[in-house]
Design a protein around this nucleic acid. Structure first.
Lengths: 164, 164
DNA sequence: TATATAGCCGAGTAATTCACTCGGGTATTT
DNA sequence: AAATACCCGAGTGAATTACTCGGCTATATA
């Protein structure tokens, strides 16, 4: 079992998608700027998210990604599963062959823990997160910062200076 | 956050200690054989467990390790914390500086998850595990196998054949 | 039709961690 | 004196992470 930046990035990016769903397809470049995640790394993560049918893509200018389902129908556990192998805490993957073909001493502890974690992450959908006041506040801050920096909002803005 | 063989080995070894507490100090060689864990690796893990004051050691022949406290007073979370950094799921370690000095979009999700996991593992003591029927069954099997193979039990047994 | 956009894809890479091994100590009992 | 068993540090191969780089393809717009 592991939960690293990989899974965290994936959930953050998916939440960003959910928050800006009404703008149409969202480009990875936008997410990259708002969430401060490397664009190429996002591409890799979204390749997996697309294979898991959690998002669908629109190519060409004005394109980007869109949630494949309603935000209420996508839970955090699915997202982590899609990019990370799993949130299973056992070494045997639930097969009870952890200690020389037999069940190890602590087998039941790890299966219980896995259930606990999976149950928790399964019970939280993207919609649940979008509704949270804390999340909306952070999202507003990020949007303001993004617009101040001159990157894509509803419409394009001519860049005047030489700022990157 | 990560939960690998390292933390699992540590909990398994501590449980082995709790199960055989009445035999006096238990050597790592015994645990190594019973639980099928590399002796040198166990030494490394017990170095940490000793620093965390979860076990105390007895040197010399007949020596080994003993729980530093009653098995009811040692919970699984402590053991994992001792060998693994922590079971914290956030990237900022709870400092809320995950996204350019500010709180990231998914911050509260990871703190909630951390609390969930920690709460679960904090609520389980070694004594709780010792009492479980499944654990006792596995322990009996391991003890039988150990005695059949001729390694340390209550007394030494001469090895006759060339079996390793 | 040219061009820019933005998704796709594979290879490569430095750093880190895991799960060990190896080779030595040192304290204690018999 | 010898055996036991804890103690300690260094090293190692494999895997993973969090990226970068370079190039490709589909599509909208000028």
């Amino acid at each position: 079992m592991r939960l690293t930046t990989k899974g965290r990035y994936a959930v953050t990016a998916m939440l960003d998608l959910a928050l800006h769903a009404e703008r149409g397809p969202i480009s990875l470049a936008d997410i990259s700027k708002r969430q401060d995640i490397s664009l190429s790394y996002l591409e890799q993560l979204f390749s997996r998210l697309r294979q898991a049918e959690l998002v669908c893509s629109v190519r060409g200018p004005g394109g980007g990604y869109r949630l494949a389902r309603a935000s209420a129908e996508i839970c955090v556990a699915e997202i982590i599963d899609a990019v990370n192998e799993s949130v299973d805490a056992t070494s045997c993957g639930g097969n009870s062959d952890c200690s020389g073909g037999e069940q190890c001493l602590t087998h039941y502890l790890w299966t219980d823990l896995s259930e606990q974690i999976h149950g928790f992450l399964n019970g939280i959908s993207l919609e649940d997160m979008v509704k949270r006041a804390e999340v909306q506040e952070v999202a507003r801050r990020q949007d303001r910062r993004g617009e101040a920096l001159g990157d894509a909002g509803e419409q394009k803005v001519a860049i005047i200076g030489g700022l990157q």
